[in-house]
Nucleic acid binder design. Sequence first.
RNA 1: CGGGGCGUGGCUCAGCCUGGUAGAGCGUUCGGUUCGGGACCGAAAGGUCGGCGGUCCAAAUCCGCCCGCCCCGACCA
Length: 579
Amino acid sequence: MKFTQTFIPTLKEAPKDAEIVSHKLLFRAGLIRKLSSGIYSYLPLGLRSIQKISDIIRRGMDKGGAQEVLLPLVIQKDLWEESGRWQAYGKELLRFQDRHEKWFTVGPTHEEVIVDLVRNDIQSYKQLPVNLYQIAPKFRDEIRPRFGLMRGREFIMKDGYSFDRDEEHANKTYQKMYDAYNWIFKQCGLNFRAVEADTGTIGGKFSHEFMVLANTGEEAIVSCDACGYAANREKAEIGYETSGSAAGSTAEEVGRTASPAPPLAATPGMHTVEEVSRFLNVPPSKIVKTMIVKTDDGFAAALVRGDRELNLIKLKNALHADTVELATDADCVRLAGAHGGSLGPVGLKLKIVADNEIKHMENMVTGANKDDFHYTDVHAGRDFTPGMFADIRNAGAGDACPHCFKPMSITRGIEVGHIFKLGTKYSVKMHAEFLDENGASMPFVMGCYGIGVGRTLAASIEQNNDKDGIIFPMTIAPYEIELIAINMKDKDITDTAEAMYNEMSGRGFDIIYDDRDISPGMKLKDADLLGFPVRIIIGSKFKNEGTIEIKIRKTGEVITSTRQELFEKITAIRKSLLP
RNA sequence: CGGGGCGUGGCUCAGCCUGGUAGAGCGUUCGGUUCGGGACCGAAAGGUCGGCGGUCCAAAUCCGCCCGCCCCGACCA
């Protein structure tokens, strides 16, 4: 492709609404343009990269035994009512009516459609397994789209769904998809990690997220270098040695007689842990935060150390609740008699869940359920009794691994893929059944497998860039090679460049030729910005010495070549840059 | 949805506080010079100042309402 024949609107400055580096570069390099919030157009270069990623996904999925299909974008309401998600999905589901006032949605995900397809056409275990995927736009009316392609409302996704006869076969399919995902992201040249994830509302036995490591990532990953355990922070368990006595579990153990109430300290206007810590001169680790939560089964209180974060998902699991959210301030006042910031477990008439760590704490500082007062020297068992101890806090750096008890570390990641075991959730609800070898009707055992295609592109840029621009991995670069002629008024140079370009295109090299009649500086700056892995320059060195310069974008390495050995050298360089 | 911020040529922004001729840089067009790191000289085109209403002799500027966009929190590929 010649530069002058395509559409690559590069920009010197990024628009001010672009915040993170991938968004800025995607925009500046002319890969995408925004139409409205969370809705983007893919320009020629952006689309080429998307297509290369899609092709890698296709190869990976096909190798894993899946077949590509294309499902409708617009889906009628009744299918979504069958699964119960017309009500359950919430406002992210874009709903609209046609001219007959019949309701539809633009599909945010396609379990319903695929189940409908399979239940009508698969009747026997002999036809299983079936594993189908598509690469298509999705629409989710996100509350807050952000960061360009990272979280759009309309976005391109690979979504796959598998159907097996039983759990055992479903596990095998899951493993194949797990392997396929590892292959796909490796081919894309990404530094990533597969981590255990919470199964969320979808349910099922287990689930893995594929995280591209990048410090701008929205997700925190907790991992153990010693044994290889890695999990999303939402899910990551914390190892606790079970030996040792739990300090303060009874009044006798701490050698105290029960007193009516622990000492009360006035803490006027002090509400946050930091404020109370400074005011009372105790470290945050000696303070216990009390949070009242509202569940589908009433209210409860959760206790974690002042320097820790409550994990609502873990709390939800500990309470066996379907929903858990923080209670409103008004509820706090009604139930505890104080506003948030002065809550405490002493005398609280609610079910109390305390984090495991609290078991070992003594002389805690807690809110007194009286505005602007805190208790000091609180002991569990003497002053209050938790209904249970559980792992309900976010893991942090240094926390013990649940498997080997070695300290874990935290890294940030961008979730580019997610695989789930769905079980029979949808097949039961939607009556999708087949006959097994005994002639019995059985629900399909399903799995679902997603990859954010646009997000994968954004994540790659997030991971591979420098101050000058993008550094594309060879496999997903819009073009692998860029040819630059330095002076378009010099016929020797343009003739050579033109011949080079024609010959390389003819030989199947994936090449773009910058044939614009602009200053060398602009071409070179644009080349850095666009980030094609290999650059070939025909300029003064060719004029003077007859040599052609090859530059590797990633390393900056410059290789000098004669015209004769160019193809051989480029072929070798290209190969060395593949994953 | 709650909190914060922004909206002025294609892009980045100044002007607004203190009302009085709409500006700069980049980009674009034309002419010329230049040609290995966003070159230089000269000329030019291009703006309902987000929208509606109000105050005023006079509004980009002050006031009100609305719209759009971005950032921080709860959801997700």
